[in-house]
């Protein structure tokens, strides 16, 4: 009973913060709202007795991803200060489509038998999770670590490509990157793509 009440409250918070993420006029705020939404998710995980995942959610997402997002917003903004306008386009069409999608998904959930089910008495423990993760699925775990390594290298190469190219002499030295105060030019788009 307690859990049901907590679930209802958390669900309401998550939906509200999720809506703020997609509708906020300020990108920095939107990122912070996402943080709130992810925290709500962590609480929901805790309600469902997945405490390890809840802590990972807080550490990785709220601590890491959101910080990274805000860095990204700051690096690519065109204005000083925290005001980074987020523009939207054709909201009514998007609303109709997402409502349609929700109806379809809800219908699927509704039509599926056997979903009116309460929580099981014995939730899996963190020890079970650790055993499954590092014993049964250890190969997948290792592959995942390789993926993460590749991602790190790839992200660095992508983001620092020009400097890297210039350093090893692969790419000619290019003019300094445009600063945030420079308005979008009417040059041919793509003419500045790194060689």
């Amino acid at each position: 009973m307690m859990k049901s009440i907590a679930f209802g409250a958390i669900a309401a918070v998550m939906l509200a913060t999720g809506l703020m993420v997609v509708s906020s006029k300020n990108l920095v705020r939107a990122a912070l709202w996402l943080g709130a939404m992810l925290l709500g998710t962590a609480v929901l995980y805790a309600i469902m007795d997945a405490s390890f995942l809840a802590s990972v959610q807080v550490l990785l997402y709220v601590g890491g991803v959101i910080t990274l997002m805000i860095f990204g917003v700051m690096i690519t903004r065109k204005h000083e200060g925290l005001e980074v306008p987020a523009e939207t386009m054709r909201p009514s069409r998007a609303m109709a489509v997402s409502a349609l999608l929700f109806l379809a998904l809800a219908a699927a959930v509704d039509k599926t038998e056997g979903l009116e089910q309460e929580l099981l008495p014995a939730p899996p423990t963190t020890a079970d999770l650790g055993r499954a993760f590092l014993v049964e699925h250890v190969l997948a775990f290792e592959v995942l670590s390789v993926l993460l390594l590749g991602t790190i290298v790839g992200a660095i190469v992508l983001a620092r490509r020009r400097d890297l190219g210039a350093a090893v002499g692969l790419f000619p030295a290019t003019p300094p990157m445009p600063t945030g105060s420079v308005a979008p030019t009417d040059e041919e788009p793509g003419s500045k793509v790194a060689a």
Partner: peptide, 24 residues
């Protein structure tokens, strides 16, 4: 990109409708 996403979403809606009202 959003227009392509739109197409994907519509495709998913179609699949969901088919799954719910079609084969089940």
């Amino acid at each position: 990109a959003p227009d392509y996403v739109l197409a994907v979403v519509l495709g998913v809606v179609g699949l969901a409708v088919w799954a719910v009202f079609g084969s089940w």
